[in-house]
Nucleic acid binder design. Sequence first.
DNA 1: GTTAATGCAAAGCATTTGCACACGT
DNA 2: ACGTGTGCAAATGCTTTGCATTAAC
Lengths: 162, 162
Amino acid sequence: MNEKQHDRQEFISSKLKLMEDRCRKSRLSLTSQRRAILENLSSRTDHPTADHIYASIQDRMTGVSRTTVYRVLETFVQLRIAQKISSPEAKARFDADTSRHHHASCLSCEKVIDIDATLLPDVHLKKNDIDGFEVFDSSFVVVGLCKECLSTDGVARTFKYN
Amino acid sequence: MNEKQHDRQEFISSKLKLMEDRCRKSRLSLTSQRRAILENLSSRTDHPTADHIYASIQDRMTGVSRTTVYRVLETFVQLRIAQKISSPEAKARFDADTSRHHHASCLSCEKVIDIDATLLPDVHLKKNDIDGFEVFDSSFVVVGLCKECLSTDGVARTFKYN
DNA sequence: GTTAATGCAAAGCATTTGCACACGT
DNA sequence: ACGTGTGCAAATGCTTTGCATTAAC
């Protein structure tokens, strides 16, 4: 196992531990479905939709329904184990990485890629900066075209300035 | 008419002019529906969904269908007269203000409010910062709770840390 | 045993598409 | 006239809900 894979394993198991703590604290059951969904989400870096997770879990474990995936993800967001990320498409995407970082969405293939937090300035908003708004999280969202889509002429042209 | 209202009128008519130019350049028809939708969108600062606009237009002008609202808004985005804004909900929101500024989304009432561009540092991403990604636009997305929802105890509690 | 979670099927929104008719140029 | 845009109705996609069953504590 190389270093990256090892780090990922570490991340997954720390996430599972975190979930167990938070669930116990809130008196929520530790179900096999919750474990399977969190394990799947934290093993990926592609910011899946609920349906992506559903599809990917079906391969390994039958008996997790689509409904449960939606409900469990919502629970994770409430427990702050995962986050819903902002993107211009009309679809919810999830990320097990709740640390501060940013995202770039491709307008053509809808891929969402991570942007390292250190590439952008650290921003601190105070409550009165935005009319009494209480900030839970803030991040940069970049929209544009990814390398792969840019190299596909036809697709890119559709999105160029008219 | 006070100064703010006057500025808004100015904004609306400059938007309409811009649309006429862009449509002529791209050989698109100047229909009454396009004018009505753009007029509605640019008169508001609440970042409406397609359906908000549909509902609001129905009051003043019958005979604009929901389908047309969706289609016309998509055209405006392509012509860069309006933008789709990023938010954590699974719904598309539109903004006639295509100048650089940022947004704060309330997790409780789903309101989206503007954040002045000058409150946050100006960020310049170069193509190679994000693995060949071509940036069309980038902005900060802040999520949290707005002043009004914070003052409603029950609602706010749901979103507090467990 | 009690409370909470899941699965199913159905409903509910948000959005898109195909096709015939109407409108802008 | 010609091509594009619109309206309708139906389809599709994403997400939520009600209720009976099952699993966790």
